[in-house]
């Protein structure tokens, strides 16, 4: 009767390793969404971009660190592009993101020259550190965990520095930030770029972990990441910089264990996206349902272009 618990328990480490990798993406979603107030969809394209770039670099026989660095740079460029499109042409942030992720699909295909690359025979971060342990989940957890900790610590330090406080101000109140001498335009471009860089980094680690890259990898990753972020925030809160930075990691860990539990309970993988989508919808919509006024008013008109 409790067979499902045993099969769930067996995949906990694998799932945890995966969730740590995805937590880079969730951080890459959190920074634009929460810190910069820029709802950014780039990660949906930056994640496979990072995977494709890393795969090509690895398949060419280069060092895994170089592959990850290249992925990081390309993801950064993708994020910067989204922000720039919004700022320069005043196109709605979500639409700017969709434009970039759509274009990235072609670019990703061009980069790989085909729809997928197997990487089993090439070097990876894990093999590079220890060829013998490369496939052990606990080992992956340690390696990726150290990387996550590094990014987390860097973020925690940065957002409390003088520069970091100006970045947060740019998101908290762009008009007021400008009046305080803060270059909001540049910060937005670089900040959304940083988000794209993290998503791409996640993609580059993912392909090394799973041993292949595919242009369709991570389809729907943005909604998964958003679900993870919402869970993380409801667990650790977002009242301080520390909590806001911890939320992606905690949320990702919980979210992927939940998914794994649902799968062992018999949820069909094909229905996962529907389930996740409904979950995000519920979480975003709940406050609205609760605040039932006398009657419903029409929300302010949204514009494609300001």
């Amino acid at each position: 009767m409790f067979d499902f618990l045993i099969s769930f328990w067996n995949v906990v480490p694998v799932t945890f390793a995966q969730s740590l990798i995805i937590s880079f993406v969730v951080m890459g979603i959190m920074i634009p969404f929460r810190i910069l107030g820029f709802p950014d969809l780039t990660s949906e394209g930056a994640f496979p971009l990072g995977g494709c770039v890393a795969a090509v670099v690895l398949a060419a026989g280069f060092n895994p660190l170089l592959a990850m660095l290249m992925a990081l740079i390309c993801g950064f460029a993708a994020g910067c592009t989204t922000a720039w499109i919004h700022l320069r042409f005043r196109i709605n942030t979500l639409l700017a993101g969709i434009l970039v992720l759509t274009m990235l699909y072609s670019i990703n295909l061009r980069i790989m020259g085909r729809t997928n690359i197997a990487l089993f025979n090439f070097d990876s971060l894990f093999k590079w550190i220890s060829p013998s342990m490369a496939n052990i989940p606990t080992f992956k957890i340690v390696v990726v965990g150290v990387l996550v900790l590094l990014v987390f610590a860097a973020g925690w330090y940065f957002f409390l520095t003088e520069r970091g406080v100006t970045v947060r101000a740019a998101g908290a109140g762009p008009q007021m930030a400008e009046a305080q001498g803060i270059n909001v335009w540049t910060i937005t471009v670089l900040g959304v770029g940083a988000g794209g860089a993290l998503s791409a980094l996640g993609g580059s680690i993912m392909v090394q972990s799973q041993g292949f890259a595919d242009v369709n990898m991570g389809l729907g990753i943005l909604i998964n990441g958003l679900a993870a972020l919402i869970i993380g925030e409801s667990v650790v809160g977002r009242s301080s910089t520390l909590r806001q930075l911890a939320a992606p990691v905690v949320g990702s860990a919980i979210y992927y264990q939940l998914i794994s539990l649902c799968l062992t309970l018999g949820l069909k993988p094909a229905d996962l996206k529907l389930a996740t989508g409904l979950f995000v919808l519920l979480m975003l919509g709940l406050p609205q349902l609760r605040s039932g006024g006398r009657y419903r008013t029409v929300p302010p008109q949204e514009k494609v272009k300001e």
Partner: peptide, 8 residues
């Protein structure tokens, strides 16, 4: 002023 990378 130019903001620095030391704690604010």
């Amino acid at each position: 002023r130019r903001s620095s990378l030391s704690p604010g």
